[in-house]
Computed example of a mutant assay.
Amino acid sequence: MRTLRLSVRARLTAWYGGFFLLAGVVLVALNYVLVSAQLPQVDSFAIAVGGPPLGPADQTQVVTTLEDYRSEALNTLLLQSGVGLVVTTALAGLVGWVLASRVLEPLQAITATAHRLEVEDLGRRINLDGPDDELKELADTFDGMLDRLATAFDSQKRFVANASHELRTPLAIQRTLIEVALADEHASDDVKRLGGHLLATNVRSERLIDGLLLLARSDRGLGRREPVELDHLVEDALYTFRHEPQDISLVAEPVAVLGDAVLLTHLVTNLLRNACTHNHQDGNVAVTVRGTNPVLVVANTGAVIPADAVPGLFEPFRRLADTRGGGAGLGLSIVRSIALAHQGNVTAYPIDGGGLCVEVNLPVTDVRSTATYGKIT
């Protein structure tokens, strides 16, 4: 059952109108009691007017007339007071709506500023004018928070850029030195064997650093948003996996999502690499792109995965005990981080008989006709 959701302005108007109506009802009731007490009482009227005693018929007529008079007067009072109360309550509700709108204008300005904020554009501020009250204090506090956030984001971007340069440069130099040593025709077998191990370690270190930097970048959110043809992006990514021994199939609908094409390419590539790495030699990978949620689905064969172990796969550096392939355990963490940066989400569940199915939900901006593709060659 859906709960009715009222805005703050509507609730303030309802409270204002409700209290006004309650006060009006109390006032009408008090007025009714006072007027009723001032009207002549039937029992004491004959004594009050004096004069010769009345006969039974005349007494009955006087009582009936007085009762009709009192009843008509009180009914008229209630009717006119009720009409006046309804009209003034409606006017009070209209005035309450206008006053609530004026009072909530600063909050609307704060909300509008928050909606317009982007990671690459944290320079927007509210700069609220007006009396030095609680709402202006709130707006100034929000502006101060944005100043601190902008400083933190700038510091993080500089750190990531510097770390990228400082970490990649020595690894590139090491790789070059190892390759030069391995290319020496006089190198012994032990040197070549050691060089091969060092080169493999160097490659894993480079992948780990690239993954960590990508994870840090996606955790910052999106710097820009643009329409991305997800089906074309998946096709291009699958082309790089054409030499994999697994059978890779694709069923795709042309779908456009709003986001960063580079980050989405990393998302798809990490999903495909994870599906191929943690798979049987003669296994298969099924990729589906569709316009209804989930937008992207990647399912693969492989070892049986316990259901309680699946949530941990999205944590950095978390791998199953029997996982092979030399990965750093960042693939699904990066996928989740990129999906969250696009206001999406990722879910996964084990497949009966072995393997994993990963579903990615992303905001869809366009859906068109369906296309089916077979084996990627």
Rank of each mutant, 00 (worst) to 15 (best):
A339G: 09
A321G: 05
N202A: 13
A252F: 00
L122P: 02
L320M: 10
Q59P: 02
A48M: 07
R242M: 04
V358M: 09
T370D: 05
A237F: 02
P311I: 11
V289Y: 03
R5T: 11
G259Y: 03
A371Y: 12
V228A: 08
F317E: 04
L264P: 00
T151L: 14
L362H: 04
V251E: 07
K192G: 07
L146T: 11
T60D: 04
I178H: 02
T370R: 07
D129L: 14
F159D: 06
V25P: 00
A181E: 01
E315L: 15
S188I: 10
Q246N: 10
L356F: 11
L128I: 14
D352P: 00
G50I: 14
G354T: 09
D366Y: 09
Q61A: 14
R124F: 13
L66T: 10
P363I: 15
D43Y: 05
Q156F: 10
T301F: 00
P131T: 13
V295N: 00
V180A: 14
Q156T: 12
A252H: 00
L213E: 01
V310H: 07
L267F: 03
R368L: 12
A150Q: 11
R125C: 03
F317H: 13
R193E: 11
A100Y: 04
D140Q: 12
R318T: 15
K157A: 12
P106D: 03
A109Q: 13
T269D: 06
H278E: 01
L39A: 03
L128S: 05
L74K: 12
F241M: 06
S369V: 15
P316Y: 14
R116G: 12
R193A: 10
R124L: 15
V285Y: 00
E244S: 08
G331I: 06
T201K: 09
S164I: 06
S205M: 14
V295T: 01
L215K: 06
V63L: 05
V49N: 02
A161P: 01
A14F: 13
L74A: 05
A23G: 12
T365G: 07
K192L: 12
L138I: 08
L238V: 05
I351L: 11
N202M: 04
M145S: 04
L272E: 00
L267I: 09
L117H: 02
V42R: 07
D140K: 09
I305Q: 07
A90M: 13
V49G: 08
E134L: 07
T201E: 10
I376A: 01
L199F: 09
V335I: 15
P53M: 13
R9K: 13
F142R: 00
